[in-house]
Simulated assay, not measured.
Amino acid sequence: MDHSPAVRCRTAFISDIHLGTKGCQAELLLEFIRELECDTLYLVGDIVDGWKMKSGWFWPQAHNDVVQKILRLARKGVKVVYVPGNHDDRIRDFCGVHFGGVVVARDAIHEAADGRRYLVTHGDEFDGVVQNARWLAFLGDWSYRALLALNTHFNRARRLLGLNYWSLSAFLKHKVKDAVAFIDQFETAMADEARRRGVSGVICGHIHKAEIRDFGDIRYLNDGDWVESCTAIVEGFDGEFRIVDWLQARKAFVARPLQLVEGDALAA
């Protein structure tokens, strides 16, 4: 019996996987990649968490499987572009180099099926905290991982009660005034950079919040993360973009495999 991929698209964008950390949802990402069929895959930064790996080695088999699966896609002819972020910034030293069919680029210009052009960049270079107060960024990263650890125990108890996953940090991002203001400033800065570059929009990651919204004539797209939300941005063969929420999409897939290009069943 032939197996049809659950997510069939022209282009896929994923970021903020944070391989090398306990918060990485590698098993869910593997599930997504196995059900993904695309011509081009963009890895939009923070794929490997070099910050965390400096303080201790954590690399279970599932993390290695993610790397191998991505390399396998490249060997099968998928164009894979790796745009590093702040947590894997050392890889920026290798821009222009190919690793097993994966090309490393500081940023990229993606031309969609409808001819529109989009800047693809992680986004940390437009984050004032990362650029101007690196110590504060490290402190924030430590606090975020502590929050994730707390959230893991909380959700373990929720599963025992038959309840769905709930993200404490996502809740706080939406409720805390300063966090909301930071996200808004970041999104505006990204849209401004796209406008300066003369493109139709920007596709980024960094802030772990999947979003598609318009800033006047500029479209802002953020593919989220694979630590909490497990989201990706995909481009259909018509040049339109959607957010795939894999935590929700996999429920539909378990019941009946679906193709993204034939409907919005897998899109948030």
Rank of each mutant, 00 (worst) to 15 (best):
H3D: 10
S4N: 11
P5A: 14
A6P: 08
V7G: 06
R10S: 15
T11Q: 03
A12V: 10
A12Q: 03
F13P: 02
S15Q: 00
H18N: 00
G20D: 00
G20L: 01
T21A: 01
G23T: 07
A26S: 04
A26L: 00
L30R: 07
E31N: 14
F32T: 03
F32Y: 02
D39I: 03
Y42V: 01
V48T: 06
G50V: 07
G50F: 12
K54H: 13
F58E: 08
P60V: 10
Q61H: 13
D65A: 11
V67Y: 00
R72L: 11
A74E: 04
G77Q: 10
V78K: 01
V80F: 03
Y82P: 00
G85D: 04
N86E: 06
R90S: 14
R92S: 12
A105S: 14
E111I: 10
A112R: 00
D114P: 03
R117D: 01
H122T: 01
E125C: 10
F126N: 11
G128T: 12
A133T: 14
W135S: 14
W135C: 09
A137P: 04
L139N: 09
L139V: 12
A146K: 15
L147S: 06
L147A: 15
A149D: 13
A149H: 11
H153I: 11
R156N: 14
L163P: 06
N164V: 08
Y165Q: 08
Y165W: 05
W166D: 10
S167K: 10
S169R: 13
A170H: 12
A170W: 09
F171T: 14
H174E: 15
A181I: 11
A181E: 15
E187K: 02
A194D: 03
R195W: 09
G201V: 04
G201D: 01
V202F: 01
I203G: 05
I207Y: 08
E211L: 14
E211F: 09
I212Y: 07
D217W: 05
D217P: 11
N222F: 01
D223I: 07
G224K: 01
D225F: 02
E228D: 15
C230K: 00
I233S: 07
I233N: 08
V234P: 04
E235A: 03
G236D: 08
F237G: 07
D238I: 11
R242V: 07
V244M: 05
D245I: 02
L247E: 06
L247T: 06
R250F: 08
K251T: 12
K251P: 06
F253I: 14
R256C: 14
P257S: 09
Q259L: 12
V261W: 15
E262D: 15
A268T: 11
